[in-house]
Amino acid sequence: MKPKVYITRRIPEHIVKRINKTCEVRMWDHEDIPIPYEILEKEIEEIDGLLCLLTETIDDALIRKAKNLKIIANMAVGYNNIDINSATTHGIMVTNTPDVLTETTADLTFGLLMATARRLIEASDYLKSGEWKTWSPMQLTGLDIHGATLGIIGLGRIGEALVRRAKGFDMKVLYSNRSRKYEQEYELGINYTSLENLLLESDFVCVMVPYTSETKNLIDSEQLSLMKENAVLINTARGGIVNEIALYKALKYREIWGAGIDVFENEPVSLDHPLLTLPNVVTLPHIGSASIATRTKMANLAVTNLMTALQNEKPQNLLNDIYFIN
């Protein structure tokens, strides 16, 4: 009998065909609507493998309903949507899709930094609305990027890729991290410092840490108050790392100059969210890894992890400690 697999969102057909060769596949066939929790509750009872996204909450209650589940393959780098401890307790493998989205996410992060600093969205809307009547010396003036100081909070793979882009703009780069990275300091020409000092000295601050209990509200009103009045905050990591209400107040009262946000604590973000009302914020719908090539690679890697586990072999990107009998 073929293993049963459920996919919680439509992925490219040629990738689904890979699984169809050896598995019985069902899929939530709605590209823009997350699968309701109650439907996933029913589906998970009989399946052997689950391929899911960050939009699905795979909690202890859901995992307990899984009778045959061997693998939860998350199509993302982050996995805070999955109760890893519960999965491990029940002998279920959990995997993610790191590495393949590093460069694409770094591209988006630096692009968001540029769009915020130079007010590109605001300027485009200004033109399209018919407000542009003449050239004026200080019209829609923004911030210089070249030669500025960039502070990176969390120097992982994406942070390192961001450094390489910043160096092309002759930026000075500071970083704070849980552990100091001497080799990267030498190779990339960057400087380690405390979070407090990074916030005090940086013109642009990029949040790049994973979301954990320790990083929840890592950037709150106290941290925002340390930043320069002409500084910009960029978050392409996870919502919840930055306190959104504190950020709104800092932006509204011009305690900092601007912000670029690709992620929110609750997604999709409500249209009445305060941050969406401010002119000095560029907001995006969580598109950090959204290139055709990268999303295809992510789907392929998630499927590879899934199929490897269903063959009772250890997947490349295993996140929890599961014992294997081959």
Rank of each mutant, 00 (worst) to 15 (best):
T104C: 14
E103S: 15
L112S: 03
V94R: 01
L108K: 10
I92T: 07
L108Y: 14
T95P: 11
D107S: 11
T95Q: 06
N85Q: 12
T109R: 03
N96K: 07
L112Q: 08
M93W: 03
T88Q: 14
H90F: 08
A87F: 11
D107H: 10
I92Y: 10
T95F: 06
L120R: 00
A115Q: 01
A87W: 08
T102I: 11
S86V: 01
R118E: 00
T104S: 15
A87M: 10
G111V: 04
V100T: 15
T89N: 12
M93F: 09
D99Y: 13
N85E: 14
H90P: 01
N96G: 10
T95M: 08
R119V: 00
R118D: 01
V94G: 06
M114S: 11
T109I: 11
T102P: 09
M114Q: 11
T116H: 01
L101P: 14
L113M: 08
E103V: 14
I92A: 10
R119Q: 00
L113I: 05
A117M: 09
V100Q: 12
T95R: 00
P98Y: 04
N85F: 04
G91T: 12
L112M: 15
L108D: 01
T105C: 06
M114I: 15
G111P: 01
T95I: 09
T95H: 12
T102E: 04
T109F: 02
L101Y: 07
H90Y: 10
A115E: 02
T105R: 12
A115R: 00
M93L: 10
M114K: 03
A115M: 13
N85M: 02
E103R: 13
D99H: 13
D99P: 14
D107Y: 03
T116P: 01
V100N: 14
T104Y: 10
M114R: 01
L101M: 12
N96F: 03
V100L: 12
A87P: 02
L108A: 11
T88S: 13
A115T: 10
T97V: 13
N85L: 07
M93D: 09
L101N: 11
I92F: 05
T109D: 05
F110R: 05
A106L: 02
V94C: 02
A117H: 07
T102N: 11
N85V: 13
E103F: 08
N96V: 09
T95K: 05
L112W: 02
